[in-house]
């Protein structure tokens, strides 16, 4: 077996009285799309921020791309791409300038237009970043996450707050990133998203992993334990109706 690109062993983190992460262990293979699922406050973001070198764990070890995060956070940062929850880009820059700005932070020259083209934002290159719609901003943050040609990218709730069209557009983008051989670790609390995108998911609750397997295996296990839905599953749901009526076209002003 090849060495995993992300490896986490018995990670723990406490904020005062609250124990946010209580002994999490998992590995992610290169090229995988790995999902961390869980309700708000389950410890997803804390786990991801430790892996990104933004927070120190209280105990346990984590390594990304062969580097111990605690020992060399800068080395990890150099090799990963990130999209943070609740963060923003500096103001008064155009979309293209934001990409170039992050090129400076990684100390490399970047072809900003080519990156924007990859996320379908080339036509917004000279528009101010502040004026982008929610979906466009998420795509810009993915372009920025790709600035340093990372081996792994971390997406923290990339589709929260987006409309159905923009969500589906972002799913396609994540799949195209995976197709280029980049490992993706994403957190979400949308289960349909995890089902579509992830090769494997870890379900986290109260700081612990309660299940870890491919989505289909988890579903099969559940059904195997004799689970049935109280109501017969319809062949379509309201989201399908919505998309049928409003189309898959991206809505952006």
């Amino acid at each position: 077996m090849t060495t995993p690109i992300i490896s986490v062993t018995d990670l723990r983190k406490r904020y005062g009285e609250i124990e946010a992460v209580r002994g999490i262990s998992f590995t992610v293979a290169e090229g995988e799309v790995f999902g961390l699922l869980g309700p708000n406050g389950a410890g997803k973001t804390t786990t991801v921020e430790i892996l990104e070198g933004l927070r120190n764990a209280d105990s346990g070890t984590a390594s990304v791309a062969g580097i111990d995060v605690a020992r060399d956070p800068t080395g990890v940062k150099r090799r990963i791409g990130v999209q943070l929850q609740a963060s923003a880009f500096p103001e008064h820059y155009t979309t293209k300038e934001v990409v170039e700005l992050f090129g400076i932070f990684y100390d490399r020259t970047v072809d900003a237009l080519a990156l924007l083209r990859q996320v379908d934002l080339a036509d917004r290159a000279s528009q101010r970043q502040e004026k982008l719609s929610g979906g466009q901003r998420q795509r810009l943050s993915i372009a920025v996450a790709l600035v340093n040609e990372p081996r792994v990218i971390f997406l923290d709730e990339p589709t929260t707050g987006l409309d159905p069209q923009a969500r589906r557009n972002l799913w396609a983008l994540v799949q195209s990133i995976r197709d280029r051989g980049i490992t993706v670790l994403l957190t979400t609390h949308y289960l349909d998203e995890a089902e579509v995108l992830c090769d494997r998911v870890a379900i986290i609750d109260e700081g612990r992993i309660v299940a870890l397997a491919p989505p289909r295996t988890l579903i099969a296990d559940l059904l195997g334990r004799g689970f049935t839905k109280p109501v017969l599953q319809q062949q379509a749901n309201l989201e399908d109706v919505f998309l049928d009526l409003t189309g898959h076209e991206l809505r952006e002003d």
């Binding site: 150099r78 943070l84 963060s87 923003a88 880009f89 990684y106």
Partner: peptide, 17 residues
């Protein structure tokens, strides 16, 4: 303002010293 909006955190997620 940058700290409040999470801009500084985003920059600190890069290897920029």
């Amino acid at each position: 303002a940058d700290k409040q909006r999470g801009v500084l955190r985003r920059i600190m997620a890069t290897p920029f010293r």
